[in-house]
């Protein structure tokens, strides 16, 4: 098991596997953790309904076919698929996270590899002032 995938808060590999199979027809074992993929998530969400997510890929433009985001604990783990035809390897958005979860950026390269970066975001029901 890749070191990057262990000990993350909110990890749920079984649920993630379902999402990976549905979206890519591949499983967690087919992913290669890569430092070229940088996934920026807040360590703690201000609001689970609105969590900024950003993916930057340090690879030449033509080598990145698509960027995917997954959240282990979401009922539908696949958050988005972004096909890049003319853009730089970058994607940012705001996503809903159901609870504290591991988040994955999966990058499809032109040569058919699936690169992985993981992060974890804590979502709480909160306290009061």
């Amino acid at each position: 098991m890749p070191a990057l995938a262990q000990g993350l808060e909110g990890e749920d590999l079984a649920n993630l596997e379902k999402g990976l199979q549905a979206a890519l027809g591949k499983g967690f074992k087919d992913l290669t953790p890569s430092d070229a993929v940088k996934l920026t998530m807040p360590a703690i969400a201000e609001s689970g309904a609105n969590v900024p997510a950003e993916v930057e890929v340090a690879l030449p433009q033509g080598q990145v076919k698509a960027i995917h985001l997954f959240a282990d604990k979401n009922p539908t783990p696949h958050l988005v698929a972004v096909q890049l035809m003319g853009g730089l390897p970058y994607y940012a958005s705001r996503v809903r996270l159901a609870e504290t979860t591991a988040v994955r950026a999966v990058v499809e390269t032109a040569d058919g590899k699936l690169l992985l970066a993981s992060a974890s975001t804590r979502v709480t029901v909160g306290g009061c002032g």
């Binding site: 988005v80 972004v82 853009g87």
Partner: peptide
């Protein structure tokens, strides 16, 4: 130049 397919979990 790009095609984005969001699932049910975008804000």
């Amino acid at each position: 130049v790009a095609e984005i397919r969001p699932g049910p979990s975008t804000s």
